[in-house]
């Protein structure tokens, strides 16, 4: 049922990764993504891939769910692999169709890129699997808070994100309700070509927009009633504290980065 949707793709658990500070997780994820792009040889990339697999094992998120997050990128993977095989030339030539040669370098590049993209997706989806959306926006707000000196309203942005997340299920329910109401009046939403179907959506979206604005208005009232005046002078119930395990995670990251640099240096570059 529509009521059962969860926001984001958080997988509840109590693993080491779940318990890390969201700020640490955000920084580490970003860091590892940069490191992925620093990899030049199969060995350094292998180290990252190993890290990703180890992290996935640590998170105790079922392998099935992680594979599910790879599903949407299958097309991209195949596409980049084919392009790389066909357009990169060099090294031993395996076979040739017309003008297009399939070479050792091409195949290597294709495999390399695929591993790179898969590690990228696995690492970044681990972040969203082990962190609730609220924790994510909170962490982001705190990481970005130094931007206040440039007059960027970090708190307002984070609040907007939280509210947007909060209202996703509410608005989905609303769409469901409006669709049923319009169907009851004879609206035909399921037949006809693309243009006809798009047109049929207009009577859904107009009431949805109207109700979204009305909700926003009421929410603003309710927030004023609860003394919300913006980020200033606000405290937080849930404090974030960087603990030993967060520093251990950072150290681990530094070690991986060093490993990548060393392996890059000693082994032949693929790209």
């Amino acid at each position: 049922m529509i009521r059962d949707i969860t926001i984001g793709q958080y997988y509840p658990g109590k693993s080491v990764l779940h318990n890390l500070d969201p700020r640490a997780k955000l920084i580490i994820t970003f860091w590892l993504i940069v490191v992925i792009f620093l990899c030049k040889s199969f060995f350094s990339l292998g180290l990252i891939a190993l890290t990703a697999v180890a992290a996935a094992a640590l998170s105790r998120v079922p392998a099935k769910m992680i594979l599910k997050s790879l599903k949407p990128i299958v097309i991209i993977l195949v596409f980049t692999a084919v392009l790389n095989v066909l357009y990169t030339e060099g090294g031993k030539e395996y076979f040739r169709i017309w003008e297009i040669a399939v070479t050792e370098k091409g195949v290597n590049t294709a495999i390399f890129t695929m591993i790179r993209i898969v590690s990228l997706v696995v690492i970044s989806s681990l972040l969203t699997y082990t962190t609730t959306p609220t924790m994510l926006t909170d962490g982001l707000e705190r990481i970005l808070s130094p931007l206040k000196i440039f007059k960027i309203k970090v708190h307002t942005l984070a609040m907007m994100m939280t509210l947007a997340l909060r209202f996703i299920p509410t608005l989905i329910e609303e769409i469901d309700r409006i669709m049923n109401a319009q169907k009851a009046r004879g609206a035909d939403l399921e037949s006809g070509g693309i243009i006809q179907r798009a047109k049929a959506l207009v009577p859904i979206f107009i009431p949805l927009m109207v109700s979204a604005f009305r909700r926003a208005y009421e929410l603003a009232f309710a927030m004023t009633c609860r003394c919300y005046t913006g980020g200033e002078g606000r405290t937080r119930m849930k404090q974030m504290k960087l603990g030993v395990r967060d520093f251990a995670a950072f150290l681990f990251c530094i070690a991986v980065t060093a490993g990548v640099v060393v392996l890059n240096h000693f082994f032949e570059a693929v790209i």
């Binding site: 926001i7 609730t132 939280t162 909060r166 003394c227 005046t229 405290t235 937080r236 119930m237 849930k238």
Partner: peptide, 15 residues
């Protein structure tokens, strides 16, 4: 306001 019950209850006192 919040996506978790206790966070929502905390919203007022936080303000």
């Amino acid at each position: 306001v919040a996506t978790i019950v206790e966070d929502d209850v905390a919203f007022g006192p936080e303000n």
